[in-house]
Nucleic acid binder design. Structure first.
Length: 286
DNA sequence: TGCCCCCTGCAG
DNA sequence: CTGCAGGGGGCA
């Protein structure tokens, strides 16, 4: 589910809760979702930091280990102060799923003060992986990751060069390629291209320098907007406390096919690019 | 570079 | 029942 904004919001929320807590117990209900070193290595370790790398969550422990968590499509990380604690702001339908272990809770961490962190994942695409912090860069998802959209390296020139290098593919596929840019997924890709008035079906190397300048700015603006609204919560995405984001109420094209374009009134179209549903306005995107 | 797959659930 | 879903790895 989560793309950059969703992971960013989640990480910021968890940061305020997890730093300094000591892991007392780890329970794995679904061994296939746990990779790397065993859970015993985490006992007694203090949480030193938590950060986002593209769409990956990296929790670093004081003892030199890092816990990598990828939420893929339906992952959730839920923090609760106590067992049975009421979750604030959650959607009624998500209350049960988010507030306590369910059949979708595959891993949970207990901390020294009795608080907990649950990893839920309905579709089981995600994972928890424990690695040495010193070998973090060996993890393939980190080693091959492209620039972060919020990094100073993400310039119009960088984007233009990347687009030029891929004459055979579409602009959408380049934006979604995590080795080029880390963090853009299906929602924010379609939204950014709408803002930049560029059709997702365009060949990557047909995008002009002028268009690239606008596109780069619109990518950043769109991601910032997603963070501002707490991410997109269609069904599964929730914050660390179970609350839902509201970006789904502010999307202009994503999953709006058949509805009117907010910019020109034309009907929003849908097609498939790289196996992913793709939404655009055929009239005001060129 | 493109296709299939992982898995579960939901809407039409 | 079919198609689709915030991701991405493996395979020709």
């Amino acid at each position: 589910m989560p793309e950059l904004p969703e992971v960013e919001v989640l990480v910021r929320g968890l940061e305020g809760e997890l730093i300094g807590r000591i892991i007392r117990h780890v329970e794995i209900n679904k061994p296939t979702m746990w990779q790397g070193q065993g859970p015993a290595n985490l006992i007694g370790q203090k949480i030193a930091s938590i950060e986002r790398v593209a769409k990956l969550i990296v929790i670093s422990l004081s003892g030199g280990l890092s816990v990598l968590i990828h939420l893929k499509m339906t992952g959730q990380l839920i923090f609760t102060d106590q067992k049975g604690a009421k979750i604030a702001g959650g959607h009624p339908d998500d209350q049960f799923l988010a507030s306590q272990p369910s059949k979708y809770t595959h891993v949970f961490f207990d901390f020294d003060d009795g608080s907990h962190l649950y990893f839920n994942d309905m579709r089981q695409f995600g994972y928890v992986k424990v690695v040495d912090s010193s070998k973090l860069l060996d993890h393939k998802h980190i080693a091959t990751i492209g620039v972060d959209p919020f990094a100073t390296e993400f310039t119009a020139k960088y984007l233009f060069d990347a687009l030029q290098k891929r004459p055979k593919t579409t602009v959408k596929q380049v934006l979604m390629d995590q080795t080029v840019i880390g963090g853009i997924g299906n929602i924010y890709c379609d939204e950014s291209l709408f803002e930049a008035k560029i059709l997702p079906t365009r060949k990557a190397n047909s995008i002009t320098k002028t268009e690239t300048v606008a596109l780069r700015d619109d990518i950043i603006k769109t991601l910032e907007k997603g963070i501002k609204y707490g991410g997109t919560s269609y069904k599964d995405y929730v914050h660390h406390n179970g609350a839902r984001g509201t970006m789904q109420d502010h999307l202009k094209v994503y999953r709006r096919y058949g509805q009117k374009c907010v910019r020109c009134g034309n009907v929003i179209s849908r097609t498939i690019i790289g196996g992913r549903g793709t939404h655009f306005c055929a009239k005001c995107q060129k």
